[in-house]
Design a protein around this nucleic acid. Structure first.
Lengths: 122, 122
DNA sequence: CTAGAACCTGACGTTGACGTCAGAGGCAAG
DNA sequence: CTTGCCTCTGACGTCAACGTCAGGTTCTAG
């Protein structure tokens, strides 16, 4: 498939796909005229990349890790990165959970006037 | 306390504190010579701000919400923002959890050579 | 065959939360 | 008094992941 279709199917922009290639995260066959052509698994790969981006990994970190994904093996260095990122994500989840709880408390606090002193005329 | 001490105690940079003030998130008394002076609760407030930043809220959103925190009440608009941000955070937590699971799987997969086919010569 | 959509390669623009530097003034200690 | 650290304002720098535009080529539907 060509780049536009991949973009649609993976839910990202065409520009993003070219950027991923630029960063060494995604490869494409080139037709004679220079157009990129992708195979089916590219859809999953792009979604994986997006997922890792969303988790806060940088292009460089992803570029370091993807070869291990492809090969199914990891070096001591890549394992260290993996574990470090996993821990970072866990910490981020904890922080977000805390923030969510604060927002929840804020919602409860501010939307029920004088909560606990309820005496609302029916 | 002065800005340096607040920065230390809240774990942020002096620049960040001035930026928060610029964005209307933090106020300070000014001495005759123009130096900022903060009271104790400022430490908590800075940590709240940091927490909200870490959760992905923008300066503007925080600026919209802090008055509600201060007043303990919310308008329909602020409630909408609160709920929207809460939902966004929940979605982000779900995404991060997914990413963490993928990394965990990757760690397991790549660090135990031929898992399930174990036959290692002792 | 032709119009229009899709694609190409540069290359500059954007955004948010600060970092950093310059130049000047303020404050406690010896 | 001066040394040295802290603070001030103002303004430009940074970084990542793209957005967007220009100018040109290629593919495809009718």
């Amino acid at each position: 498939m060509r780049i536009g279709e991949l973009a649609d199917r993976a839910g990202v922009s065409v520009r993003a796909l070219r950027y991923y290639e630029e960063q060494g995260l995604l490869y494409a066959q080139r037709s004679g005229s220079g157009q990129r052509h992708y195979s089916e698994p590219a859809v999953d790969r792009v979604q994986l990349i997006q997922n890792l981006y969303a988790a806060g990994l940088t292009s460089k970190t992803i570029a370091d890790l993807l070869p291990c994904v492809d090969a199914g093996v990891s070096t001591p260095e890549s394992r260290a990165i993996l574990v470090a990122e996993r821990d970072r994500i866990e910490a981020q989840i904890a922080g977000l959970t805390h923030a969510r709880d604060r927002l929840d408390a804020l919602i409860t606090l501010t939307s029920s006037p004088r909560a606990g002193c309820a005496y609302e005329p029916s």
